[in-house]
Nucleic acid binder design. Structure first.
Length: 490
RNA sequence: GCUCCCGUAGUCUAGUCCGGUCAAGGAUUCGUGGCCUUCGACCACGUAACGCGGGUUCGAAUCCCGCCGGGAGCACCA
């Protein structure tokens, strides 16, 4: 069921080294799953090693590194079942990059530019050289030392690569290699002021860490060219690159930085809020990581940008959990009704936990004569006969249509035999337990469920019949009311 | 605008490198029917695709050219 995964060029089984490099600015979301599972897939296929390298350089206003995210991401990996063979932090390796910078400068391929960022950008767009571009090597070396020796303030100077100002791709013209940042880094504080930018740092680390193949999103293709440029310049041999295209889940406006604000301000219920579409939010909803892996791998390594409905993921999950998930009765927005003429001997029924799986056992459910029914199930039923699922048939009296006020509609018992009637979910009023259902949209729905839910295990997954799969909150204390569950999918 | 990437059914994908076995396979969605006391599962059936136009060839989803459409990049972010 996996999509296409080509051979890694020149891969030798047993000696492949892969790396994945999340930026620690939030919990991993559904899109990041691709990074995890694709790398894991190749690691396993070639019995290689997979490194986790936190890409925690200085960042920016929009993307800032925070301490809590390291463990958050480590936790996400554990959750996803992706075990890295080693963990590195870019911030530990900054000084490793300086000798490389020196080599580039000595090749005459870089210069220290003191243009303001805007001017730099402007000039790049028009292919105009900054005055410093013709800087001789020894002067660049001196300026570089000055940068390292705190001779410049943040933003005052950068080290730029000399490529070709008329390169057809404006993005490739004299890119910045190092910049100065006074950020207080959560791991290394103010130890470094001169920070490498992504492409240079990888030009160094992919080689120093012995990475044999780089597999990353295609938003990073220009970095391939940069890395190769630097390697060619230095006569170094670097790994080949492979990419996957953009993956969007239609329902998920996947933007980690966006969730960041909502989580920080408390608008969201933490990183596991269903609206984040984070890995942990999917787990919270009872979506298995195996389903997510299969879903993700089904797209192969295609470079095409794709948008997939979440239903595809749900279908994958359903296949995995349906056969083993117990059924339970739940009624949202309940209306209390009493059935007239309800048979006295039917105060309790034994129902199977799964319609097709006898081995999942049964449970006893109290019934009648007073029930909770869903308001939307009852609306407009006047004059019609329906079946209370697994129980009896009743007829709603003829009357004015519309919403049924609580306790007013008094359906009348008609018969017991199983007939082809609309089936309504019910919960016997004598034993109903309050249930709080958290929806995918972050809203809570109150309802009632059958008594056996009181004995649910935290984290247990159920199918609420005619509603969908739900998972009991892991931090719910057994026996407390209401039973807190999270909606997964239909 | 410039650079790069991508176009197979509603959606995703196999096939494209090395043209014939592809009157295009799979998954999902949707529709119909069956079955089980769920609107879920399962079973059966069905709808539905090679972006367009040229060219090469006995033969093109596959090779070439042009066009059109979509996406990403053009940060002192990653």
């Amino acid at each position: 069921m996996t999509g296409g995964f080509p051979e890694l060029p020149g891969a030798v089984p047993g000696s492949v080294v892969l790396r994945m490099a999340p930026f620690p600015s939030g919990a991993l979301h559904i899109g990041n799953g691709r990074m995890l599972f694709v790398n894991q897939y190749y690691r396993d296929r070639y019995r290689g090693k997979l490194l986790l390298v936190f890409d925690d350089t200085a960042g920016s206003e929009q993307k800032r590194v925070e301490t809590e995210f390291f463990n958050l991401i480590l936790g996400d990996l554990a959750l996803a079942g992706v075990r890295p063979d080693a963990v590195f932090y870019k911030s530990d390796r900054i000084s490793n990059h300086y000798p490389w910078a020196r080599r580039v400068i000595e090749k005459g391929a870089a210069y220290v530019c003191r243009c303001p960022a805007e001017l730099l950008r402007e000039n790049r767009a028009h292919g105009i050289a900054c005055p410093e571009r013709s800087q001789p090597v020894d002067e660049t070396l001196a300026e570089w030392e000055k940068m390292l020796a705190n001779g410049y303030a943040e933003g005052e100077a950068v080290l730029r690569l000399r490529t070709d100002l008329h390169d057809p791709d404006p993005a490739f013209r004299d890119r910045v290699l190092f910049r100065i940042s006074d950020v207080d880094h959560p791991r290394v504080g103010h130890k470094y002021r001169v920070w490498p930018l992504l492409e240079f740092s990888w030009a160094v680390d992919d080689v120093e860490l012995g990475v044999t193949h780089v597999i990353r999103g295609k938003d990073l293709v220009i970095e391939d060219r940069m890395q190769r440029f630097i390697w060619d310049l230095l006569g170094v041999r670097g790994p080949p690159f492979l990419h996957w295209g953009l993956l969007r889940v239609r329902e998920a406006k996947v933007a980690k930085s966006k969730s960041y604000v909502e989580v920080k301000t408390g608008a969201y219920d933490g990183w596991a809020d269903p609206r984040t579409w984070s890995l942990r939010s999917l787990d919270r909803r009872g979506i298995s990581m195996d389903a997510l892996r299969q879903f993700t791998l089904s797209f192969g390594l295609s470079l095409a940008d794709i948008e997939v409905p979440a239903e595809t993921l749900y279908a994958e999950n359903r296949k995995l959990i349906d056969a083993t998930t117990p059924r339970r009765s739940f009624v949202a927005d309940p209306v209390r009704v009493e059935v007239e003429g309800y048979p006295f001997d039917l105060s309790e029924v034994v129902l199977p936990n799964h319609p097709d799986r006898a081995e999942l056992g049964t449970r006893r459910v109290r019934a009648g004569p007073i029930f909770f029914l869903a308001r939307k199930d009852v609306a407009g039923r006047a004059g019609t006969e329906v079946r209370l699922k697994d129980l009896v048939n009743v007829r709603f009296p003829l009357g004015e249509d519309g919403p049924v006020p609580e306790g007013v509609a008094r359906p009348r018992f008609t018969s017991r035999e199983n007939r082809k009637l609309a089936r309504l979910q019910w919960v016997g009023a004598s034993e109903a337990v309050a249930v709080d259902l958290l929806g995918t949209d972050g809203n809570h729905t109150q309802g009632v469920g059958e008594a056996s839910l009181r004995r649910a295990q935290p984290g247990e997954v159920f199918q609420f019949e005619r509603v969908g799969f739900v998972r009991v909150e892991a931090d719910w204390k057994m026996g407390t009311s209401p039973v807190r569950v999270v909606y997964g999918h239909a």
